[in-house]
Simulated scan of single mutants.
Amino acid sequence: MHKSSVLSIGRSAAALAAFAALAACSPGTGAAPAETAAARPEAFGAAGYRGIAPGMAKEAAVATGKLAAAPVSALDGCTVLSWQGGPAPDPAKLAAETEAQRKADDLYARSDAADHEAKQSAGKSAAELAKAAAKDAEAAQLAADSAMASAEVAGKREERDKAFAAAGGASFGKNGLHELGAPPGAKTAEGIGVGSSLADLHKAYDARGLKPGTAGRFELPIAEKPGWRFVFTPADNGTVGGVAISDGALKCR
């Protein structure tokens, strides 16, 4: 073989090696797995969502910039914040909630005190018996008024819960985040989100312990977060209308 042929073959091999090295480092090959991982959507689940995690303090959660700072509800002592871009606070609604809560609390305290006083009433004279009867009547009326006020609060609580299921958000109590609702478009690791069929919900979670909960919802215990659970709110059209994780507390005070 001529010396010139050997040199030509050597140069060709070197060029091929250089091309292979460039191809391995190009964005279209070696970077593909990283791009795929980055494009994978975040799952809504036990670890929370968008940096908002179970037990996180409200101030720390707001500091992430993912939540609005002003509450959309403060019923039952729970401060409910929307996701950024979600429902804005309604001052009239907030005022109505505050007044309903104040009225219910006041009537409950007065009813309890009147009932206690009525039970202490004793006597055999006509005047004493009349006084005891009056106290019984007062206690009964206050109990009825208290029940009506509690029913009004329950109605506003149902309105709050429906809005929370539809738009998601974060609810905080004295111990930090106690409920986190998924925004529209978010899905669990198993692909369940708002709009999923109830059939798919059962297929994904029945074997893991999905059970009927309160108010027609479905609940699933979260093994890695003792005391916490998934809460799936069904819609009227046979789909999932809301997804949340919750510590199960009905009130925050």
Rank of each mutant, 00 (worst) to 15 (best):
R157P: 00
D161H: 09
G155M: 07
D161R: 14
D200E: 12
A149P: 02
A140V: 05
D206I: 06
A204N: 05
A189C: 04
E219K: 11
E219M: 10
A199K: 11
A163K: 07
F164G: 07
K156E: 01
K162Q: 15
S197T: 12
A149V: 00
A149D: 02
G216I: 00
G193E: 01
R160S: 12
E219W: 02
R208H: 12
K187V: 03
A207S: 14
L201F: 04
A215I: 00
P183A: 14
E152I: 03
A170M: 06
V153G: 05
E152F: 02
A167S: 15
E179M: 13
A186V: 03
M148H: 12
A186D: 02
A143C: 10
E159S: 14
L177G: 11
Q141L: 13
G155P: 04
A154I: 01
A215K: 14
T214P: 00
R160Q: 15
G216A: 08
P184A: 11
A154V: 02
S150A: 15
P221G: 09
G195C: 09
D145H: 10
A139W: 04
P183Y: 13
P184S: 11
A167G: 12
A207P: 01
Q141K: 15
E159W: 05
E219A: 12
G168E: 09
A154C: 08
A163H: 06
A151P: 00
V194K: 13
K174M: 13
E152P: 02
L220N: 00
H202M: 12
D145R: 12
A144Q: 12
S197Y: 01
E158D: 15
D161Q: 13
R160F: 10
E219Y: 04
E152G: 04
A204S: 12
P184M: 08
G169T: 09
E159F: 03
K162I: 00
D206M: 09
Q141F: 11
R208Q: 15
K211D: 05
Q141H: 14
H178N: 15
E190M: 04
G216T: 03
S196Y: 01
V153M: 10
K162N: 13
